[in-house]
């Protein structure tokens, strides 16, 4: 009887340690990536709005050549902007088009974040449930 229980507990613990916890770490990393994307696009949106507000048509900036070496660059016409739409494709947008695209993209990112958050919550719930099962098998008093 005791041996069976011990084996069960061991199987549960292995499930938590080898399956659920790596899953959780992975899901959190994925969500962080999406957060990053969200930040990039919100920055871009703010910048474009800035350009619009100040009606900037030409721009001079510094380009990073790598290893923090910069060179001056000149943009004669800022009304056309190439935005990364994924898979290495860039689309030539005007400002308003770009803003429309960005808001659609942000919506999608928000949904993704929500999905990941839900996934993380469910993994956490599973971990908690398995731990509770182990506790019952060990017949320990309730901790919390």
């Amino acid at each position: 009887m005791d041996r069976i229980r011990e084996e069960k507990i061991q199987r549960f613990e292995e499930f938590v340690d080898r399956r659920l916890k790596p899953d959780l770490v992975h899901a959190i990393a994925q969500r962080d990536k999406v957060f990053e994307q969200q930040k990039i696009f919100s920055d871009l949106k703010r910048n474009i709005e800035n350009l619009e507000r100040n009606s900037v048509t030409s721009l001079s900036t510094l380009v990073n050549l790598g290893s923090e070496v910069y060179m001056q660059a000149d943009v004669p016409d800022t009304r056309h902007i190439f935005v990364d739409v994924g898979l290495g494709f860039h689309v030539d947008f005007t400002w308003s088009e770009a803003l429309n695209y960005i808001s659609a993209r942000e919506e999608k990112l928000d949904r993704q974040i929500e999905d990941y958050t839900r996934l993380i919550a469910s993994i956490k719930a599973q971990i908690k449930m398995v731990c509770e099962g182990i506790r019952e098998l060990l017949q320990l008093p309730e901790s919390s």
Partner: peptide, 11 residues
């Protein structure tokens, strides 16, 4: 221009 956008321009 940011991480996700470009302008055509020159150095």
């Amino acid at each position: 221009f940011g991480k996700a956008a470009f302008f055509p321009g020159q150095l």
